[in-house]
């Protein structure tokens, strides 16, 4: 009962956040200097033609009307037309890019989550010993390494010397990503390198905290074998903070990989956003930013629910016997 209440409350908050964010994005773009019609037609256009275009695009309508039209289109799946690629429906390219990004995020996720968590557990259980020192050092080093450095190192090793994976993550014209899954590996690896430090360190410290708790002592002195104590008694509690960290980073993983995507030339949402900004393609910028916002809000929501579900203190209302 409590869980459902929490679910509905968070869902409500999520919708509210999205509405507020969409307004913010719309009005921020609105107050940006420059006239859309002028931008489209170029500096040489006559005043009449600019006015005519403004008229036809509805740019003279009051701001709230334009916001509602824009937001309404969004809800119905109409993302508008690109300005740079004149007349092209944004949705025709946007969703494909989103799909690529999701696939990359998913790949990165299955690369880094198990490794980081396992290494974090190992470091936490062996705190102060050699295994811990090695893992902690590697984590710290990879955290300090920016993606463009680690990416270049990966390219040098795997593409230039070993020639296992392609240098650039390009999809040949006429093919889909499904026939070119190997392009995912290097970007996913470089994300893994970035995330490993964060997640393993978080897992390590929460593991240390849990292992020194009273209930672990109690389980040990109940005669339970150490391995059993670690995996059956400690892990479930020690995972909670890590899940939060992973969830917080889901948004970044789906929509914020601008550096990684640019480096590898990966056709995802990040590189699309970057090119939209470069070309001042305002409807496209709006679509990208709003979608990235949505991913952030949604992953926070999912994290929160997962946390609540895994934590019996939230899942079951306090009720004394």
């Amino acid at each position: 009962m409590d869980f459902l209440e929490r679910f509905l409350k968070r869902l409500g908050f999520m919708v509210l956040t999205m509405v507020a964010m969409s307004m913010l994005i719309f009005f921020l773009v609105e107050i940006m200097p420059g006239d859309v019609a002028q931008t489209i037609l170029g500096q040489a256009a006559t005043e009449e033609s600019v006015a005519a275009l403004r008229e036809s695009m509805g740019l003279d309508d009051p701001i709230h009307v334009r916001y509602l039209r824009w937001a309404g289109g969004f809800v119905q799946g109409d993302l508008g037309q690109s300005i740079y690629m004149r007349g092209v429906e944004i949705s025709s390219i946007f969703w494909r890019r989103v799909g690529h990004s999701m696939l990359l995020a998913f790949t990165a996720f299955i690369f880094y989550v198990p490794v980081s968590i396992l290494m974090g557990i190992l470091a936490g259980v062996k705190a102060g010993k050699t295994a811990d020192s090695v893992i902690s050092f590697v984590g710290l080093a990879t955290m300090a390494l920016p993606e463009f450095v680690s990416g270049i190192i990966l390219i040098t090793i795997f593409s230039v010397y070993l020639e296992i994976f392609p240098i650039a993550s390009l999809i040949p014209i006429g093919q889909t990503i499904w026939g070119n899954l190997n392009i995912l590996v290097l970007p996913a690896l470089s994300i893994t390198i970035v995330m490993f430090g964060y997640v393993s360190r978080m897992q390590r410290s929460s593991m240390i905290g849990v292992m020194s708790s009273d209930y672990i002592r109690a389980a040990t002195l109940k005669g339970m074998p150490r391995r059993y104590v670690i995996f059956r008694h400690a892990l479930k509690n020690a995972l909670l903070p890590t899940i939060t960290i992973i969830g917080m980073n889901m948004g970044w993983l789906f929509g914020g990989l601008i550096v990684v995507e640019t480096l590898f030339g990966f056709p995802g949402l990040g590189s699309l956003t970057l090119s939209a900004i470069k070309t001042r393609d305002i409807p496209l910028i709006e679509a990208c930013v709003l979608f990235i916002t949505f991913i952030f809000v949604f992953s926070t929501f999912i994290t929160d629910m997962a946390y609540a579900f895994l934590n019996p203190k939230i899942r079951f209302k306090q009720g004394e016997v």
């Binding site: 708790s213 009273d214 209930y215 002592r217 109690a218 389980a219 040990t220 002195l221 109940k222 005669g223 339970m224 008694h233 479930k236 509690n237 895994l310 934590n311 019996p312 203190k313």
Partner: peptide
Amino acid sequence: RGNRIAMVYQNPYSSLNPS
């Protein structure tokens, strides 16, 4: 441990695994 010699501690709440 827990079989021939068993222990009970000060704080029952923190001695039980919350999850």
